[in-house]
Design a protein around this nucleic acid. Structure first.
Lengths: 211, 211
DNA sequence: ATATTTCCGGACCGTTTGGTCTGTTTAGTG
DNA sequence: CACTAAACAGACCAAACGGTCCGGAAATAT
């Protein structure tokens, strides 16, 4: 086995992510990572000065990976329709499809894992969490702003609340999926969320049942 | 200060709950509890053989406390209306009111905290988590079953999914509330969930904007 | 009043844990 | 090939941690 610095660094990050989602950050000990990845202390602390530095790197990596998925899915939705409402509905459905193929519960969201140990982390990490969630909000908020202008909602709602709703449903579904060991939870709850958007903005005349 | 066994035991449980919600279970060290509660190791391990036993006691306590709140709120809703749909809507609104008075984000759900460290716990604790969430589902599922029979939903939905939706929104809102430091998150997202139920079951003619 | 049990303080202990240090191997470079 | 720097292995360490133990104080029973 050849020595490849960036490769082992990636392996550490991947392994640590898996373990954090299973055990929480404090529950994940560095020795666990060493065993899981198949390296030694020397290798680990060569790539990360401290465990907390790994935590930050993990967070940044997850946030950027996730931003990529969001951006790609959004681009895909925008390619399939010019209407902002349809774009959102497609966007949600694409996420449904992502989770529908899974056979076991989604391992969870790293950010949520951090949130429930929030006081463990320093200000930098906390603001990084804040910014990431804020970015997710902004992404969908823009669409919902357009939608609200074009289609009068049946209830008084704000674009930011609807945008947060997506994240809320996802995060909540992840928790219930793990607790109930139900892999379909995320797909089902996203479908309910999509139904809500449909009902909220659909013209009273043309209300039709969704597939 | 007099010696009161059950009182200190309660103080330990209360303090531990606060700390778990801030630091996670693994992040909460027993020394933290000792300092936070103002006792010593002797007192702690007199009431709890191990830290894991505290974890289980904590879980049982939280689950029963929560079951009480659910039952009371449900009873209150049933007192205010005979119609299952109205009962659910009142039920949700009562929860909205509970969180609306808070000035800082709800500290979170202990069960969710456990879920993100699930592999830390033994089978007994895990099944306890499972049962508790299942109980919450059943509670609302009964109502939604009646509602679906009486009012044709505009989309094909199952009672259990709608019931899970409530928990999903709550759990997701707690996470976002902490991450964004927004105390109104839970209230706002519950309102969206209530709007969804209204739109889903409202007769097309009598659809009116909610307050 | 005495005995007994519960409750608790705090020193102590073995293990775990994050992190260090030294030496060795591998990859790149002239 | 010689040299350098990055990439590791693994023994080692100090602090933190969960848990034990025993003495004593406070409540309760007799």
């Amino acid at each position: 086995m050849r020595k490849d610095g960036i490769a082992t660094r990636e392996k550490i990050l991947d392994g640590a992510r898996d373990l954090v989602l299973k055990l929480g950050y404090s529950g994940m000990k560095v020795d666990h990572v060493l065993e899981h990845v198949g390296i030694t202390k020397g290798a680990f602390f060569h790539h990360f000065k401290t465990k907390d530095e790994l935590a930050k790197a993990l967070l940044r990596r997850y946030a950027s990976e996730d931003a990529l998925i969001y951006a790609e899915t959004r681009a895909q939705a925008e390619k399939l329709s010019d209407d902002p409402l349809q774009q959102i509905l497609i966007f949600i459905r694409l996420f449904e499809d992502m989770f529908s193929e899974m056979t076991e519960p989604y391992p969870g969201c790293l950010l949520a894992s951090y949130v429930y140990e929030l006081q463990q982390f320093d200000d930098e990490t906390r603001s990084l969490l804040h910014e990431t969630f804020a970015r997710w909000r902004t992404l969908l908020q823009e669409k919902f702003t357009l939608i609200i202008e074009r289609y009068p909602p049946k209830n008084p709602v704000s674009a930011s609340q609807l945008a947060d709703g997506f994240t809320v449903v996802l995060e909540g579904a992840f928790i219930l999926a793990k607790a109930m060991n139900d892999a379909r939870m995320a797909t089902e709850q996203l479908r309910l969320y999509r139904n809500y958007i449909e009902l909220l903005f659909a013209a009273p005349e043309q209300m039709r049942a969704a597939a």
